[in-house]
């Protein structure tokens, strides 16, 4: 492991500007990811989790997006790197998979072509060599009768195979970092678990760092080393998966878990979080969750709570959380968790 983390974000803010309003979707995020580490960003729609992910590759719509703060990915300063050099990083060092492989793959090109295209772009190999590698990749992601599937168009494949093809394309250049935007959400239950396990084994085999965005706590539990919970554009809780799932500190995380249906909730009333997330078009002071929080006090509404560290590797933005005695390793958990 080098001294530099794979991803280092400090005070990252992303705003979308239109004639009507400015929406600050990501409002000051600090994030570190080590090589080979799997981090899940957990949040609901509008929390800014997908925007954060896209910001790491500067993929949010150009001309409408303003990014500030500091952001380094695999040693590149994403804030200042010119487009030409950034495109050499995209797909090679950092690559991305999406929720809907049907719309994320070009419908008029074959799967084989779209994989080979990536290889040719970054490795400068011949078309024939790229086709051979594409076949190996399809086999690596366990697509049956891979040779035949190379010539298939996206609409000719089932949802699970499409997502496998998307993954094959993303790992074609052995990236150091894989960004996954809800890659299993659109899949059937029996297929979702297959894709999760595939991603987990590929991650270990290739030693990739992974940032995995999801709204599903169960999915995060299957794959993440650490979980970052996002609410209204900010990370409100961060910690190892085991810690966050066993003992959530932030009232929002607690509410989310109480609201998650699972075996054992039958016949009981689900705890719910009243109200709705704030409208990000309007700036607000204080803790964004305060209006929905049963423990909120005046102090909560005055200013955004700073991170408290209730345990090793844990960070929570809530004034009710006490700092623990041991504070020697802030915000860092080993990948072994």
């Amino acid at each position: 492991m080098t001294g530099q983390p794979l991803v280092r974000a400090r005070g990252l803010r992303v705003s979308f500007i239109s004639r009507e309003a400015t929406v600050t979707a990501v409002n000051g995020i600090d994030l570190d990811l080590d090589e080979g580490e799997v981090l899940c960003i957990l949040g609901e729609s509008g929390s800014g989790k997908s925007v954060t992910l896209r910001a790491l590759l500067r993929l949010n719509p150009k001309g409408k997006t303003v990014m500030t703060g500091a952001l380094a990915v695999a040693g590149h300063d994403i804030m200042t790197i010119p487009d030409g050099r950034l495109s050499a990083v995209r797909g090679k060092v950092v690559s991305m998979i999406f929720q809907e492989p049907m719309t994320a793959l070009d419908p008029v090109f074959t799967i084989g072509y779209q994989i080979a295209e990536t290889l040719i772009r970054h490795e400068g190999i011949s078309r024939r060599e790229a086709d051979r590698r594409a076949l190996e990749l399809l086999e690596l992601v366990q697509i049956p009768s891979a040779r035949r599937r190379l010539g298939a168009y996206p609409h000719e494949l089932s949802g699970g195979l499409r997502q496998r093809a998307m993954i094959a394309m993303a790992i074609s250049c052995r990236p150091k970092l894989l960004l996954a935007d809800e890659p299993t959400t659109a899949l059937d239950a029996t297929v979702q678990i297959q894709i999760l396990l595939l991603l987990r084994s590929l991650q270990q085999e290739l030693g990739m760092g992974v940032i995995f965005v999801t709204h599903d706590l169960g999915v995060a539990g299957e794959i993440a080393d650490r979980i970052a919970v996002m609410y209204a554009g900010r990370i409100v809780e961060l910690g190892s998966t085991v810690d966050v799932m066993r003992q959530p500190f932030h009232p929002y995380t607690q509410g989310l878990m109480g609201a998650t249906v699972h075996s054992g909730t039958r016949g009981k009333r689900l705890t719910t979080i009243p109200g709705a997330p704030p409208d990000l078009r309007f700036p607000f002071e204080g803790c964004a969750f305060a209006p929905r929080c049963s423990h909120a006090s005046d102090a909560c509404r005055e200013s955004m709570p700073a991170f408290r560290h209730p345990g090793p590797g844990r960070a929570v933005r809530c004034i009710r959380v006490e700092d623990a005695e041991i504070k020697h390793s802030p915000k860092r958990v080993s990948a072994m968790a």
């Binding site: 993929l59 995209r90 797909g91 991305m96 999406f98 793959l105």
Partner: peptide, 10 residues
């Protein structure tokens, strides 16, 4: 899919 293409560095 255009985002995908940008994302893979074309």
């Amino acid at each position: 899919y255009i985002t995908t293409l940008r994302g893979k560095g074309l």
